[in-house]
């Protein structure tokens, strides 16, 4: 196997993690990664030597994600609603999350895709502002404001979730 393919293979775990933070549902996330890999292999020649495989692949995947979000928006927001906890119980055991993780994941899904992507890119994936701005195709200032607003929104959403949890406990 050539070096390029080996490098792509090595990035799959990171791509899956990013996709999972964007799309919550495991199979949808892997579908996104699959589309990304398919597109990447068709465009292997566009990959400049020296360019980080991670940045190249994340850029491809981000474009696919945003395209998809636009389509979803045209079809209506209902398609994007996250699973309620009760429905999530139908998921295989390995997907059962701790309460804290579920609240984080629900909160991420409640954010706008743009903010979600910007925050995840920097806070989880560890890209620099410059790298993240390039991958997302936005000016650094836009990226920064998405991160700042994203963190603020996430905090509020997590506080709401904790409050609801406290109320449920009191009601029992």
């Amino acid at each position: 196997m050539d070096e390029k393919k080996a490098a792509i293979l090595g990035e799959i775990p990171r791509l899956r993690r990013y996709a999972r933070s964007l799309l919550r549902d495991r199979d949808s996330a892997d579908d996104l990664v699959q589309d990304c890999l398919e597109r990447a292999l068709v465009r292997l020649d566009n990959w400049q030597t020296g360019e980080s495989p991670r940045r190249w692949l994340f850029t491809i995947m981000h474009h696919l994600f945003i395209d998809q979000m636009r389509k979803v928006n045209r079809r209506g927001e209902a398609a994007m609603l996250p699973l309620e906890a009760s429905e999530a119980q139908a998921a295989p055991a390995e997907q059962v999350e701790s309460i804290a993780s579920r609240e984080i994941i629900d909160a991420l899904q409640a954010m706008s895709p743009d903010r979600r992507a910007a925050l995840v890119m920097v806070a989880i994936e560890g890209f620099s502002y410059a790298e993240a701005a390039t991958i997302l195709g936005v000016p650094a200032g836009t990226l920064m404001s998405r991160i700042a607003r994203g963190r603020d929104e996430l905090r509020g959403l997590l506080d709401d979730a904790a409050r609801r949890r406290a109320i449920r406990i009191v009601e029992k």
Binding site: L9, I12, P13, R16, R17, S21, A100, I104, L108, A123
Partner: peptide, 25 residues
């Protein structure tokens, strides 16, 4: 919050890569 975010997705890196994704490469 960042620590919680990272923790929520940390397990993904340890999951085996699905065969369908490897096959594409």
């Amino acid at each position: 919050d960042r620590a919680a975010l990272r923790a929520a997705f940390a397990g993904v890196l340890d999951e085996p890569v699905p065969a369908r994704l490897q096959k594409i490469v």
